[in-house]
Design a binder for these strands. Sequence first.
DNA 1: TTGAAAGCGCTAACAG
DNA 2: CTGTTAGCGCTTTCAA
Lengths: 340, 340
Amino acid sequence: MKHKKRAITIQDVAKTAGVSVSTVSRVLNGKTDVASDTQDHILKVINKLGYTSNLAARSMRSHKKNLIGLVVPDIGFPYSIEIMKGVNKAIAESNFDLLLYTTGDIQKNGTGLHEQHYVSLLNNSITDGVIIVASAAAEFITNAPIVAVDPHVINPNYPSVQGTNYHGALEVTEYLIGLGHRRIGFISGRQEIGSAGRRLKGYQDALVNAGIELDEELIAPGDFTQKNARKCTRQLLSLNDPPTAIFAANDQSAIGVFEAAEELGVRIPEDMSVVGFDNISEAKYLGLTTVDQFLADMGYAAVQMLIKLINGESLELEIHKMQTKLVERTSCQKLIRTAQ
Amino acid sequence: MKHKKRAITIQDVAKTAGVSVSTVSRVLNGKTDVASDTQDHILKVINKLGYTSNLAARSMRSHKKNLIGLVVPDIGFPYSIEIMKGVNKAIAESNFDLLLYTTGDIQKNGTGLHEQHYVSLLNNSITDGVIIVASAAAEFITNAPIVAVDPHVINPNYPSVQGTNYHGALEVTEYLIGLGHRRIGFISGRQEIGSAGRRLKGYQDALVNAGIELDEELIAPGDFTQKNARKCTRQLLSLNDPPTAIFAANDQSAIGVFEAAEELGVRIPEDMSVVGFDNISEAKYLGLTTVDQFLADMGYAAVQMLIKLINGESLELEIHKMQTKLVERTSCQKLIRTAQ
DNA sequence: TTGAAAGCGCTAACAG
DNA sequence: CTGTTAGCGCTTTCAA
């Protein structure tokens, strides 16, 4: 296979059509000041030649690119995917296209320096604005607008979409207390992440509000992974006075709890109630109750905010709060009953 | 928020550093013919100014962009996501970055014309090559290499990674026959898709090889969706002589079968064996046996092929066949037993 | 209504 | 080792 064949440029179109490049450019950009028969002719030539304008060249000259950038830490993680779904939907409804950028290397992400690099890379050239997921940086230098989804930092200096993490955690804990639980274990998220802290705070405050004494032993140090949550669960269940319920700081952790429970022969929800945060699809098969963070809706909202910014509209609220919601999952329990 | 601040260019760096733009460019591109103290100084200035090179401008001048494009029909569909995971992994191990392009509009995809457009858009400007997932076009005009993952057309005029659909289907059917089934239902995929046809052929051939007469009634017209598979299942199970096993043409369909069976009170696998194609994560919770198509591996292989092509190496095999594999899933059955 | 020409930010010869 | 210069393909004045 040879690929040396030079791509068709606007020059080729102009030459074939017998007009100047500027006329072709006008047609391409939907300017009205072109004779309609000239326009028809050029359009025909474009089609015949299979011409597609050079994105790089176009981006360089014009300010408006109709392209939104998305910087995601990991393209294969359920969390990212949920957000991407929402972004996708909003993009479909807009006249912007989407350009997603990853290095594929998770380790490169999470550091502010690289985030800045990717934002600049996109925003200073080919995109009109960028959405950054789970950003760790407190600030970004960019000459086009950005919106963050679920930033790790508490008070970023840029517009963002955030979930009501504190209230969600409060609701979970109150729900568990309402079921009669008094000893409720908590599998925490990663320390450095703001939302993880807010969830812990919600858990603690709900207990205090209900007059239940806090027990440090009941807080296990998770890190949002299934694997660690399994370990934490075993740890919690081996306490002298083990918890009768577990609140896991995210859904991956909740799945980890489920797995550990299965290994230990602990039935959910009969022997132990389990609630997780976030809305990852597998949870429903495990009979786990979750706090839906509406990740897709966050992505959706972010795109809409960004488009407003791109259009020069001001945002009434720079931080868009998404209300979390407790969702009882019963699907798997139904399965289990059916199969008996 | 104002974003009017002009981005920092290579000119700014040159001016600040007191050198010419070409010297900065040399440093940027890792050329060795620069005095090391000049280099240090320039690097320092770049850092201080927070300069990031303009992707568009760079792409326009240099042939080598170290960027691979990925065109996906739907960014939120499990099938695409599996492939993306593999692509991601390969990208991480390479020195290429990844640029994913979607319009967010599923309806726009699937048509050859738009695919061509996106391929051109990326390949004629900012990427060194493009991977296209589930392409429908038989041919692409492009001046940089492309590789297709799981193309819909049987014999595309471009390199591709394909699964052994026929053999997989043969294996499934033989497996079911081996379990003692004689009446095996088949929920087909979309007609126009090559792989769907190959799966049907495998099913039919296995039956014929085993001396089982083909029954048109047992072939239900699916379309790779859960919803339709539910309908097909009801249809199959309401036959006078219903099947004792169902082979669904993909995993979504298999999940649909599961749902319908649950609604009808048919237990899987006790009352009916079900096998699906593809490897979507949820399947394992439903106790469904599947033929793993190793979608992630396909994405991984595609990147490696593409990089070879970009580097001018020739491919010994233009079509890379990935061996499918039957995987018995027992997880959910275990769950069900545990919970009794 | 159209064309000529300037230049976006960058890289790659070519000189020095 | 470094600077000067010529474009890459496109959009956008400015004239005609």
